[in-house]
């Protein structure tokens, strides 16, 4: 925190900590990078799948249909965080905090459901096949990768929500909310694509 230790002497020094627009570009670059991460994993999955004559391989069940519920939950996340953004743009700090906390709760719910899905899927497979094979492996890798990013998103979302509850954001100043919204929309889109390639 060396920037904070010495009080800014002039306008130039002050700029060190608040660079307008830097966060937006940073977020955009981050999302592009993550897009490539997910794109590469989906391509790997599709290549594997395209080589198998039957998919799912004989003896394996289909992906659990409870994934539909997960999909609805994460879509709801996207909706609520959008509403949070709209709320603060209107200047409603209470609406912002409420919507952010709902999003946070939905995120947790999503993770819980994913865990149940994992367990259900694992149980539905004969013990001799558990933890073996491309089908299962790719399912766990892809959904696990996404879940890891959901966890990675919940932490900053919690920070933003707390700040919102304390009234740190206003209609003119709410960068954290914008970044959180962008990230959650991204997770949402990635999930929908993942769900499509895994389920169908």
């Amino acid at each position: 925190m060396s920037g904070l230790q010495d009080p800014p002497t002039d306008e130039f020094s002050d700029k060190r900590l608040h660079i307008s627009g830097a966060g937006t570009i940073g977020m955009a670059v981050l999302l592009v990078s993550l897009t490539i991460l997910f794109a590469a994993s989906i391509i790997a999955y599709l290549l594997i799948r395209s080589r198998a004559s039957v998919w799912p391989p004989p003896g394996f069940p289909r992906i659990p249909s409870t994934l539909w519920l997960s999909t609805i939950v994460i879509l709801a996340c996207s909706l609520t965080i959008h509403m949070a953004l709209r709320a603060i743009q209107r200047g409603s700090e209470r609406g912002l905090a409420l919507m952010l906390w709902i999003t946070f709760a939905l995120g947790l719910l999503f993770l819980a459901m994913q865990t149940l899905n994992w367990i259900e899927f694992y149980d539905s497979i004969g013990p001799e096949m558990q933890l073996r094979g491309q089908y299962l492996g790719m399912f766990y890798v892809l959904t696990g990768l996404h879940a890891a990013h959901v966890i990675g998103g919940l932490i900053p979302l919690g920070v933003v929500s707390t700040l919102a509850s304390r009234g740190k954001y206003s209609a003119n100043y709410h960068p954290g909310v914008r970044y959180a919204a962008a990230y959650w929309h991204f997770l949402d889109i990635v999930w929908v694509i993942l769900f499509c390639v895994l389920y169908f």
């Binding site: 592009v32 990078s33 991460l37 590469a40 790997a44 094979g133 790719m138």
Partner: peptide
Amino acid sequence: QVLATPVLGITLLLLIMERVLKIGI
């Protein structure tokens, strides 16, 4: 760095999975 490294990331992750879980990729 930003565009290529994620591909390495997923490749190495899959390699670790391959070693641990023998998923056959």
